[in-house]
Amino acid sequence: MNKLLAALVAGLFAAGAFAQAAAPATPATPAAKATPAAPASAAKAEEKAAVKTEKKAAKADKKAAKTEAKASAAK
């Protein structure tokens, strides 16, 4: 009985190892080349830079107005 169990366990290990073996490799087909999205991202980056510049200018104007208000209040 022990020999029978040993043979069954060995068979299970052999079947498991066989099932895990890699399948024969088939050559991969090349994927279609995607069109570059550079123009869209360049325009987006340019728009982002413009918005950032506008925000800086608005912040500077606000700061200048605050300084002028303090100066006129001090007189």
Rank of each mutant, 00 (worst) to 15 (best):
M1Y: 09
N2L: 14
N2W: 07
N2R: 14
N2M: 08
L4W: 08
L4P: 00
L4G: 00
L4I: 04
A7R: 13
L8Q: 12
V9I: 13
V9A: 05
G11D: 08
G11Q: 10
G11W: 02
G11S: 15
L12W: 08
F13K: 03
F13E: 13
F13G: 09
F13W: 11
F13D: 05
A15C: 07
A15T: 00
G16F: 02
G16A: 06
G16S: 04
A17N: 06
A19L: 12
A19P: 00
Q20L: 15
Q20S: 15
A21N: 06
A21M: 13
A22Y: 03
A22F: 03
A23Q: 11
A23G: 12
A25L: 06
T26Q: 13
T26I: 12
P27R: 09
A28K: 14
T29F: 04
P30D: 04
A31E: 11
A31R: 11
A32V: 12
A32L: 07
K33H: 05
T35E: 14
T35V: 15
T35S: 08
P36D: 12
A37M: 10
A38V: 12
P39E: 02
P39N: 02
A40R: 05
A42N: 14
A43W: 01
A43Q: 10
A43L: 11
K44L: 09
A45S: 11
A45Y: 06
E46N: 09
E47Q: 08
E47G: 01
E47M: 07
E47Y: 03
K48A: 15
K48S: 05
K48T: 14
A49Y: 07
A50S: 15
A50F: 04
V51C: 04
K52T: 04
K52E: 15
K52F: 05
T53P: 00
T53I: 08
T53F: 02
T53A: 13
E54I: 00
E54G: 03
K55W: 07
K55A: 13
K56L: 14
K56Y: 08
A58C: 01
A58W: 02
A60Q: 15
A60C: 01
D61T: 09
K62N: 09
K63E: 15
K63S: 10
A64H: 05
A64F: 01
A65T: 06
A65H: 03
A65E: 11
K66Q: 13
K66C: 01
T67G: 01
T67D: 10
T67Q: 11
T67A: 15
A69C: 01
A69D: 11
A69K: 12
A69G: 05
K70C: 00
K70R: 12
A71Q: 13
S72H: 07
A73I: 02
A73S: 10
A74Y: 05
K75F: 05
